[in-house]
Design a protein around this nucleic acid. Sequence first.
DNA 1: CAAATAGTGTCTCTGAGACAGTATTGG
DNA 2: CCAATACTGTCTCAGAGACACTATTTG
Lengths: 250, 250
Amino acid sequence: MNTRHQNPPEYDATDYPTFAVTVDIVILTILDGRLQVVLVKRDENPYRSMWALPGGFKRPDETLDEAAKRELLEETGVFAPSHLTQLKAYGDPDRDPRTNVVTVAYLAALPEVGLVEAGSDAADARLWPVHDALNDLELAFDHAQILNDALSRAAEQLEQTSLATSFLRPKFTLSEMQSVYEEIWGVVLDPANFQRSVKGTARAALNGASHVVGTGDYAFSTTRGGRPPELYRVGQGWADGPPLRRPRNT
Amino acid sequence: MNTRHQNPPEYDATDYPTFAVTVDIVILTILDGRLQVVLVKRDENPYRSMWALPGGFKRPDETLDEAAKRELLEETGVFAPSHLTQLKAYGDPDRDPRTNVVTVAYLAALPEVGLVEAGSDAADARLWPVHDALNDLELAFDHAQILNDALSRAAEQLEQTSLATSFLRPKFTLSEMQSVYEEIWGVVLDPANFQRSVKGTARAALNGASHVVGTGDYAFSTTRGGRPPELYRVGQGWADGPPLRRPRNT
DNA sequence: CAAATAGTGTCTCTGAGACAGTATTGG
DNA sequence: CCAATACTGTCTCAGAGACACTATTTG
C-alpha cells in the first residue's frame, strides 16, 4: 500500500478524493439560569424542518478559525468572541447523505446572545436549553453527537481555562459565576466555599492574583428578599488556572 | 450574505469549494529515556528532503478515526493502539502551496515503535527526539505547529486521562512511569512521593481502585547498582482519573 | 566499602468541604 | 417577624511536597 504518505507525486483529481468542508458552531450561553444553545431550524433537505447547529462552508481563502469567527458574527452579531475554540472534526462517511462533508466543530461561550434570527434558508432560529435539545429534539446530521462532545469539552475547560468568565458580563455577581459551574458540571456547590475559592487566599489577593476583584458596586436584589450582592470583575488569577476543581463523584 | 447555513438547496460543484482531506499522526514513544516522535523524510515536492509527520489521504468510505488507525498500522505495524485521539484540524489557506488541504492531526502513544521504514515516496523514516525535531529540524508544512500542539495536548491529557499507561508495556517499573511524566511535563519528580501517589492510599488499594498493582515479579537492575525494582501492571484507579496533578510552576 | 536505585515513614502545609453563624434585603 | 440570599469564621480531613531513613543491588 503506497497511500501512507501525505502527498502523491502530483496533485491530480484522480489521485485523491475531495470533500466539502464546513464549520459548525456550538454557541452556549446561560439564560434564565439554564445552559442554552443556539439552534437553527432547517428549511432545506435533507433533515428539513429539523433543528441543527449553525454553520457553513469554509472558504478556500480563510482559516478554519476565521470561518468560525465569520459564522459566529453572521449568526449572533458578536464580533470578538471571548471564547471560540476548536472542538473536533467529524468525517464519518454517512454523516451527510448526499456527499462527502467533513465538518469542524467549534465551541463558543457568550454572556448573552442578542437577537437570533433565521437566515434565508432556515425556517427558524432560537436558543434551546441544552437539556431539551438533547432529549426532546432530534437534531440533524450528527449534531446531537457534536453537542454532547461540546458539553463534555466545556466541562473540561471549566477546569483548565478561563472559560467560566466568557459566560459572564464585565461585572457579575459571584452567584452568577457559581451557576455557570453548577449548570455545566451538573452539580450543586456550597456558596460559602465557592466564595472563598474564587476570592482566593489573602496572599493571592495581595499579589493581585485573585480570580475576582470586587468593584464596590452592588446589584439590586431582584427576587424576593436577600442581601444585595456585590458586583465583581475578572481578576488576574485566571492566568495560573481556574479557581475550582470539578468535584469528584466518589 | 446567504452563506451562513450549512447546506445550500442543492449540492453542486459550483456551490461550494472542495478540499483534500488528510490525516497526520504524531506518534510518540519514550526511548532511551527521551520522548521521541516518528518522522518521515519527504522524497517529493513540495518540501522535498524535509522531515514531516506520517500521514495520508482520508478515503471517502472511512471515518477520520479509521483513517488514522490505518495510517498508524501502515506506519508502525501497530494494530490496536491503546491511545489514538484526535488532536485538531488545520486548514490555513497556505498550508499546502499547491491546493486546498485540510488535515486532521491525531496523537498516538506507544510503549515501543517497531521497525520504522520509509515508504515508496519517502527517503527515510525514523524516530527523532522531540526536542531535536523542534529545534534542529525544519519540518514540512505546518508540522512544527502540529507537533507543538501535540506536546501541549499530551501534557494536558497526562493530567486527565490514562495516557501515561499507553507509553508503558503491560509490566513496568514505577520509575519508567515516572519518567513518562517527567519527560512530557519537563519536570523532576520526587521518587518517594511519586510512588505514594500512584500506589494510592491504603483504602484505595483495598477497594481495588489503585492505579498500579504489584505483580511480585522484579526486573533486573541493569545499570550500575541499585535495588531491583518491582514490576507493576495497570490498576483500576485510572477510571477515576490520573494519580498525579501537574506541578504548579508558582 | 561507596554509589546508585527502590521503596517506606513521617512531618508540614495548603486547599476542599462541612457547617454554624452574621448581614441585609423583601414581604 | 420569617424567608431568602450574601457573605464570614472555623473546624476537619486528605493530598502534595520535603526529606530522613531503610533495602538491595553493582562495582
